[in-house]
């Protein structure tokens, strides 16, 4: 098995795709971090002006302690994990496209072995992308805001955990879907369209139709957004003092966790989607006639 894992790892490192996708990942993470820091800082400055302070004093809230940049971190992770998603989707789709899948299956003891080795290697890549995302998002925030806008060490640890988890799961979701739809261009377009357009339209439709808000949290993007967004909101609320209930709702929407369950439950819901995609792709690849 170790030999196959090494072979799969070599497949990823001997072509340019890993860094071709890592560059935009890092740029989105850094850009998101810079923007989150800047916006968070400016919101606090607005709230700290004397007039706003009177209002917030009257409401009994302390907005100068609100770490708005946290909400941006959640959003940034959601957007940046699109790249590991694409990286994963091309794992099998590219092999089918270039027909290297034939040699892959001819040199592995079984297709199950080949797929398992691929899964391990892409989980590793998901981790690498996840660490890069949280690292560069943090760098962006550090460069643009003061320490008051940043979470504490425990907060960073929690964000790192959900960012890496989210990145691994997105990569795996991609691997599964790429096996299910082994057409490089097709699967990439489908995933981008789904995560950026289709599901957002679907969420809007559900809200307009009056379906309970929580339904959104069971959709693929809704749940993976909830994984990171819920943690961002939790960390925000932990330091925010009193926040009106309506405010919490909007905070969740801003962080991308509108309608989502708690972070761990959101993670489990998305894991179920990953299992469905991966299971389907696995079944297809182990049965498919390679002609």
């Amino acid at each position: 098995m170790g030999d196959l894992v090494q072979a799969e790892l070599r497949k990823t490192t001997t072509t340019t795709l890993w860094w071709a996708l890592l560059i935009p990942t890092v740029l989105v993470a850094l850009g998101g971090g810079l923007l989150s820091g800047l916006l968070g800082q400016s919101i606090v400055e607005v709230f700290s002006s004397s007039e706003a302070e009177q209002l917030s004093d009257a409401l009994g809230v302390t907005p100068d302690q609100w770490k708005f940049s946290l909400l941006g971190i959640g959003r940034t992770i959601n957007l940046a994990t699109m790249f590991p998603l694409i990286f994963g989707a091309l794992a099998i789709a590219n092999e089918v496209g270039t027909r290297t899948i034939t040699t892959t299956f001819l040199t592995a003891p079984s297709r199950v072995h080949a797929m398992a080795a691929k899964m391990m290697v892409y989980a590793l890549w998901g981790t690498i992308y996840g660490l890069a995302i949280i690292g560069f998002t943090a760098l962006g925030i550090v460069l643009t805001s003061n320490s008051g806008q940043m979470p504490d060490a425990g907060g960073w640890a929690m964000l790192t955990l959900v960012c890496v988890l989210s990145s691994i799961l997105m990569t795996m979701f991609g691997v599964g879907l790429g096996a299910l739809i082994p057409n490089s261009a097709g699967v990439v377009v489908l995933l981008i369209m789904y995560f950026l357009v289709i599901e957002n339209a679907l969420q809007l439709g559900l809200r307009i139709a009056g379906v309970p808000e929580t339904a959104v949290g069971f959709l693929p993007n809704g749940s993976v957004d909830g994984l990171t967004g819920s943690v961002a909101v939790d960390l925000f609320l932990a330091d925010a003092g009193v926040v009106p209930e309506e405010g919490v709702y909007w905070l969740r929407v801003i962080a991308g966790a509108g309608g989502a369950q708690a972070w761990w439950l959101s993670g489990l819901i998305f894991l179920a989607w990953v299992a469905a995609a991966f299971g389907g792709g696995w079944a297809r690849m182990t049965q498919k006639d390679i002609t």
């Binding site: 030999d3 196959l4 090494q6 072979a7 070599r10 497949k11 001997t14 072509t15 340019t16 590219n94 270039t98 027909r99 290297t100 899948i101 034939t102 040699t103 892959t104 040199t107 592995a108």
Partner: peptide, 21 residues
């Protein structure tokens, strides 16, 4: 119809499958 990744070198292609084997 055996394939090769167009952007992988000949040596790297063989090394990938050398480790698999």
């Amino acid at each position: 119809a055996q394939g090769f990744h167009p952007n992988r070198t000949a040596r790297n292609h063989l090394r990938v499958y050398a480790s698999a084997i």
